[in-house]
Write a protein that binds this DNA or RNA. Structure first.
Lengths: 217, 217, 217, 217
DNA sequence: AATGAATGAGGTTTCATTCAT
DNA sequence: GATGAATGAAACCTCATTCAT
């Protein structure tokens, strides 16, 4: 849907990363935001630091000055995403239905470029062992939080199977976000909230809220 | 200390792509197979044509001779994947349970690198507009086949919602395959057939076989 | 993981270049001293102005403010070295044995980084034509002073050969200083005063004090 | 005497490195020769691989293809120099006078750019720990060979002092070669064989052939 | 007077591709 | 038909320097 942009020098994204002028903090943040979008959209290898710098409107050297390297910038993106996920989930979890609602919201709003989950789409290794470890850990922590809301507690063998179920739920969400955003597959790409809420609710409930109900049918 | 480069055996994958000597057709096929594995494992950008040529044991220039360019080779990989999926699905679809079983099998066996579906996982694989279109079309055709098995028929408004449901099922499968293969997230990466069959069956059934059952509960 | 760069303490040398606060003259001198050490130790190209500024604890921009450019700073170092050599040699030259003793002392104490001769070690230090001329002139003046102590007088053809002999003596000194300091070759690097005084004395005497004695043997 | 060549794009040296056309061995050798000259003249850091490639008339990428990196090329230069020194010294050593004659020849012919000793002038560290070790080892081995010709034998405490004496002789040679070639100091730079042979002979003899003679005088 | 922010030029390296043998 | 040699474009990064505050 959006052009893939191997083409040199087009740069279709540099739109709204405005900087006020000479404030390092602002520039850093703008760089991270632009980078996250590029990384999520085009992948680590295909993204060039020149693109990112040009998106923000600064010189390439600033990236190395602030983040040391392309990998450093990537890790900064990961960390920022982790932070956002953390604060987003610091809200009290009232119940499993609450969590399910959030999952659905994530999917529905995913074409929104700023959704931090987009970064998680980088399921393919970046070549940077460190960043890959961060990503793996983040996904696993997300899994545990989900499983916890469904009743899993550490070390309780009776609830161990909920970990796998939570991860399947997460996989569903990730897969759909992927199809909707980068791949642009129909009908997922243009499905509305109404189209998705119903079936997604069934899936998440059968996995997390009412395990075994389907087979009981 | 000296120049490293060309020596065969740098990569870890060049194992079984043996060539029988000087048969152009055989070499072509071997190149496509090796390329697909590399592309699926490392991504388009991170894969170098030298790796692929070295895996097969031929000169790099052959790739350009046979396929014109790296992109040409990638498209050949996509087309081959489409072909294999087609012939694999030419078998008569006896029922929805049959299809669900196949989906589960895909997920369970996904760590085996030769699954043709893996190539479809590449988020924005190449920047090659053509290959992207092929992948999109393949995924949509896969969706329709799945929906068809669940009762969807072209142009029947009453079954239109099954398309979205089928695509959610596909997303679940793709997401899980990703987690299991490239990301290596636990517990998905090491989950056994027994761990997965149950919950996956519930999800796929609630989506395709028994729509609405969960909400009826 | 984050940007490394600027933190003071990266290098190993920033030790005793303390500044007393905000005195331009003091800062200038501290910069020259730190720079000379870096240039002598690491070479012109390998030395970065950021290192030097960090050694002294001031902002990088000051170097350009005070010296115009990196080359300007280098020339300031050269000039300072020339000055120090001049004042050091303003002491009356009592005799050739005195001079020989000083040469030996230079070699023996050369591992002490502050010996201004180290700067002369920079073979083709900067690519700065101006600095190169300064160095060449300094070395030639040093040669003449040495030859003068051995009996050479300007324009006297009968003592002209003493210039070459003096320069050979200087070359011996420079070569040894190099081996002892930057190259770290054994046994020169760890040779003591006792090890060196004897043979060096013979060499310098045969060159400057008693020309032809060896061949007379 | 030759311009130092920070200036971009001049390249005063690319003269006689002619290649026949498409022979890798020839090209490799030409690269090593050109590189050695540049490294010896300008130093490791100041030499750019673009210059070297341009001297030979090939593309820069070839350097990385053949030698892996700039450091690899530098090490190849070192190794080649070591080889040449080895074969040059494989000739039977008839006596100490023979060796002394060779030392003098080295100095006299040093302005000749192809003298392998020029590389040893890089007494300043290249930043490559490996190359530095090779260089140190080469210098020490050279010292031992020289000392051996003067009567030193491993483990004999009575001849141990000859090691230092041999190294002083080497330092004299290196220092003079340096002054004659890269620094261009007068009168060393333009001294003829007649000017040098006499005094150098005295120095080397007093160090190696007749230790103590001068002090006996 | 002095600092932190930002720039631009240039260096090494990688890689797909083309050229001759 | 196939191979090794060689090229050119582009990527990341470093560093001296200049710009505003």
């Amino acid at each position: 849907m959006q052009a893939p942009s191997e083409s040199p020098g087009t740069g279709e994204q540099q739109a709204d990363e405005v900087r006020s002028g000479r404030d390092a903090t602002v520039t850093r943040r703008a760089l991270v935001r632009a980078a996250r979008r590029r990384f999520a959209t085009d992948g680590y290898r295909a993204t060039t630091v020149r693109q990112i710098a040009s998106d923000v409107g600064v010189n390439v050297a600033l990236i190395n000055r602030y983040f040391g390297s392309k990998e450093g910038l990537f890790e900064a993106c990961m960390n920022r995403t982790v932070d956002e996920l953390d604060t987003a989930n610091r809200a009290p979890v009232v119940g499993i239905d609450d969590v399910i609602g959030r999952l659905i919201t994530h999917v529905v709003e995913s074409p929104n470029a700023d959704d931090p989950l987009q970064l998680l789409l980088l399921l393919r290794s970046s070549g940077d062992e460190n960043a890959d470890r961060i990503r793996r850990r983040t996904l696993e922590s997300f899994t545990r939080r989900l499983a916890g809301a469904a009743g899993w507690s550490t070390g309780d063998p009776g609830t161990e199977h909920l970990l796998v179920r939570a991860q399947i739920a997460m996989a569903t969400m990730l897969g759909l976000v992927m199809l909707r955003t980068s791949t642009g597959v129909q009908p997922a790409a243009s499905a509305t909230s109404d189209d998705l809420t119903g079936p997604l609710g069934e899936v998440f409930r059968v996995l997390l809220a009412d395990p075994g109900s389907a087979s009981r049918a």
